[in-house]
Design a protein around this nucleic acid. Sequence first.
DNA 1: AGGGTGACAGCGT
DNA 2: TACGCTGCCACCC
Length: 236
Amino acid sequence: MSYEERSQERVVDLLAEAASRPTPSGDPDEFVERVLTRGTDRLFTCDSPLGELYVGVSQTGVRLVGKATSPEEFVRRYRERFDRLLSWGTDESTRRLAERVAAALAGEKVEVRPYAWVAREAGSPRASRAVGTAMANNPVPLLVPCHRVVKNDGTTGQYAFGSEEKVGLLEGEGVPVEELAGSPYLATPTTGIFCHATCPNARRIKPENRRRFRSAEAAANAGYRPCKACRPVVAG
DNA sequence: AGGGTGACAGCGT
DNA sequence: TACGCTGCCACCC
């Protein structure tokens, strides 16, 4: 890298740092700040089950969510990834967006699915491992809930923020993690159908009719057919 | 039977 | 390239 390139890098660093500081309202230098931040994306922080997260937003929408040791570090990562500056969003619209993001992070309907399921739905049924790679690179964790993608046997698997965090997140969302690991598939003889244990339909099976299976194949071998709503993957 | 382990196919980066 | 938030099977207890 040439001296000139390094200098440019340094300038961008300084700009990014300056841009990442909050603008006190009524600041006489507001004009300068406006110029500085024009064309930059917005930054805010957000409480979440993973702790405080930084959120970077462009015109397009939320582009990066993550932990960072400082705003500057997050701003740097954002710039390296998207080649865009980031500055604190202090306006009303950002505040509203922050609330919506916080609400989204709080979670609503929870659907847990295996990596193999995602791979098949994406059209590459043997790409389970690649799905893991994609989840690992998810720029917007929680918003795109990659923590709800688990292993085929019902155990939770790995997570960018640590496998314990993944378990904690799921439990916080009301997912019976322990139970799921024991019997990830449920069936009922009343319909002859089997589901993922987290399928809304599976939750309506009366306890006395509930049949538990460790795998979709086991359920299929027992004569059940896959639920058309949750579409469990049957190997073959 | 069913839980644990290790080798390896396989995919996309 | 080598590697990784996996799946599957063989082989053990």
